[in-house]
């Protein structure tokens, strides 16, 4: 009977060393970031206990937030605390900063990381919708090189990512909020703090002279993966914002999602409140 104590946890000195270990099945370990999801899953028996884990927490190469021509680049081991308090993220990716501030409590925010939140690939992961609305990229590295993955294609199924066993997520590159656009994040949780989402969502919208130029909207906890609402986004472009539009948005957003019942909420409530939430995101 294996327990958490049986896991061999290895601490690479560099990203290159970690990638070298991951390249070989014999040395490969479960990537471990802040541990806020994995430790709980291992302890509770929800996730299988691996032979080995590779702790990425101390790797300096995976830290940091900087502005690049392609967008804001965020290292994989950036914590929720760093995201919520970074002036750059708060200004250029305000929905992400807002989402990071709602993850767990302060202790979790000090340990949990952006890559951990994404790699856990839970439909209730609070950061995912705020990443999806940027049309950004995730970068995965392996011993043989690097690969950019559009975020829209990263989440392939329930708790599944398009990342190979020999790869590690190393950074995210997220186009900044363009001039004239705004972003919002809203979470409907089970309580006022320390809540896992029933439904949460984010939007990035550009409105000119009362007309919607473009909309990116994403919801979590309504499908096996975090989703964008392409039908709504396509339909809404070029329309004027008024009460009728908002009512139609509510109806369409609700129609476009197919959530399920679980311990936190019901399919019918989620479907209804998805429409309400998207409408609230669009209301100024």
């Amino acid at each position: 009977m294996r327990t958490v104590e049986d896991i061999e946890i290895r601490f690479p000195g560099s990203l290159a060393e970690a990638l070298a270990w991951q390249a070989d099945e014999k040395t490969r370990g479960r990537p471990l970031a802040g541990g806020t999801d994995l430790m709980v899953q291992w302890e509770s028996g929800v996730a299988a206990i691996p032979e080995r884990a590779v702790s990425l927490w101390g790797l300096k190469e995976l830290k940091g937030i900087r502005e690049t021509p392609r967008g804001i680049e965020i290292g994989a081991m950036t914590t929720h605390t760093e995201l919520r308090s970074s002036p750059l993220v708060r200004e250029k990716l305000p929905a992400l900063a807002a989402a990071a501030a709602t993850v767990g409590g302060r202790q979790i925010q000090n340990r949990g990381t952006i890559a951990g939140n994404v790699a856990n690939a839970s439909p209730a992961g609070d950061l995912a919708p705020t990443l999806l609305i940027t049309d950004g990229l995730a970068t995965a590295a392996s011993a043989s090189g690097r690969r950019d993955i559009p975020l829209a294609k990263l989440f392939t199924g329930y708790r599944k990512l398009d990342v190979r066993a020999d790869e590690l997520l190393v950074s995210f590159t997220l186009p900044a909020l363009p001039a004239g656009a705004r972003e919002k994040f809203h979470k409907i949780g089970t309580r006022a703090a320390q809540a896992i989402s029933k439904v949460m969502g984010a939007c990035r919208v550009r409105v000119q002279n009362g007309t919607i130029v473009s909309l990116a909207v994403s919801l979590g906890s309504v499908a096996p993966v975090p989703v964008r609402l392409p039908e709504l986004e396509q339909w809404i472009a070029g329309r004027r914002v008024d009460l009728n539009l908002l009512e139609e948005v509510e109806r369409r957003a609700s129609a476009e999602v197919h959530p399920i019942d679980d311990i936190r909420s019901t399919a019918t409530y989620r479907k209804w409140v998805s429409g309400r939430l998207v409408r609230a995101l669009l209301e100024a």
């Binding site: 309580r191 320390q194 311990i263």
Partner: peptide, 11 residues
């Protein structure tokens, strides 16, 4: 405690 929801200070 992940699923059994009790009030926090914020509630």
């Amino acid at each position: 405690m992940q699923t059994y929801i009790i009030p926090t200070m914020q509630d």
